[in-house]
Design a protein around this nucleic acid. Structure first.
Lengths: 175, 175
DNA sequence: GCGCGTACTGTCCGATCGGTCAGTTATTCT
DNA sequence: AGAATAACTGACCGATCGGACAGTACGCGC
């Protein structure tokens, strides 16, 4: 049942946004009562948190793997790892992108939306250039868009595009 | 008074999103009652519509100017014109980007959010490649990010970046 | 049969939302 | 001065939200 709830919630959050999806919407999709959701999860935020935790764990692992690296090696590994991670968690990225204002202003859900910040920070690398942050956001949005059903961007194309943008923006390589 | 309302609303919508900003928020910022807002505007949507209408008019003018052009000339003119327009209406772009789910699912506000579609379409040009649409969205997001106070991306840098991305993605020119 | 924990639900709650409306204040015209 | 009009507001409304809670159905060990 928990799995059913998470599945429905993931699909609805990805298409309608977190704030745009009510508990009643999820309950109707699952086919149970709203109260049943709150029996399995302490509140609405907990559903989102659990939905994003696998991506968070993998990101933490990647951060550990990148820690000892430095220079261009670190930049390339970061880009490869994060683009790969983002592509494997397209739906989660899509959810994070949905409520941009919630992410940036973050009056709530600090734990959850810190994930977005960490993604952006990791993508931007250790670069001080604000362009790197801009690129990182744009990369996430690219993935978000590629996960939309009506935009059939091939994964190799998107991956190459993102990697090129990252390396150019980070100033470590140009082609 | 109408001008005060529009000014406050623009600032709040840009930072907190349209759905994330209540009429009470605007009224408090202006220093009047919520009912006073609805005396000057028929409803909340009308405030947003009026806020975005100048950008909509300019976009329509640009579309007319581009209509007779063709080929690479048209692509270059479109990119120049739209990047320029988007940079001059940073706050409006930021408002449009805020509620991504509202824009894409658009269960409401069809007139307003059609503006985003037109921006994207115009930026993507006549290209059939889905990559063009992805780039167009990313360009808008780049502008959105550059309008954030904490990201001081210089306008020439951003403009060059956007133009380069556009021409490359549209497949009409590479550097 | 009985006790008991798990799964689940109908119902209610306070808060907040966009919006309405009767009524008040201020200003302008005659 | 007084009527008319514009500007504005407090109080209220229905809808919807996330969430609380008492109660119910059910299966399993004893």
């Amino acid at each position: 049942m928990r799995a059913d709830i998470l599945d429905s919630a993931a699909r609805l959050f990805a298409t309608g946004g977190f704030r745009g999806t009510s508990l009643q919407d999820i309950a109707s999709d699952v086919g149970c009562s709203k109260a049943s959701l709150l029996y399995h999860f302490t509140n609405k935020d907990a559903i989102l948190t659990e939905l994003l935790s696998p991506a968070g764990r993998e990101l933490a692992e990647l951060e550990e793997r990148l820690a000892p690296l430095d220079g261009e090696e670190a930049a390339r590994a970061a880009v490869d790892g994060l683009v790969d991670l983002s592509l494997r968690f397209r739906r989660q990225v899509r959810i994070l992108i949905q409520d941009v204002d919630t992410m940036t202003a973050r009056p709530e859900l600090p734990d959850v939306y810190a994930l977005t910040d960490r993604l952006v920070d990791a993508l931007a690398g250790r670069s001080d250039a604000p362009e790197a942050r801009v690129w990182a956001w744009m990369a996430l949005v690219g993935i978000f868009l590629a996960s939309a059903g009506d935009l059939q961007v091939s994964e190799p194309t998107l991956r190459a595009e993102l990697a090129r943008g990252a390396l150019r923006t980070l100033g470590r390589h140009t082609d």
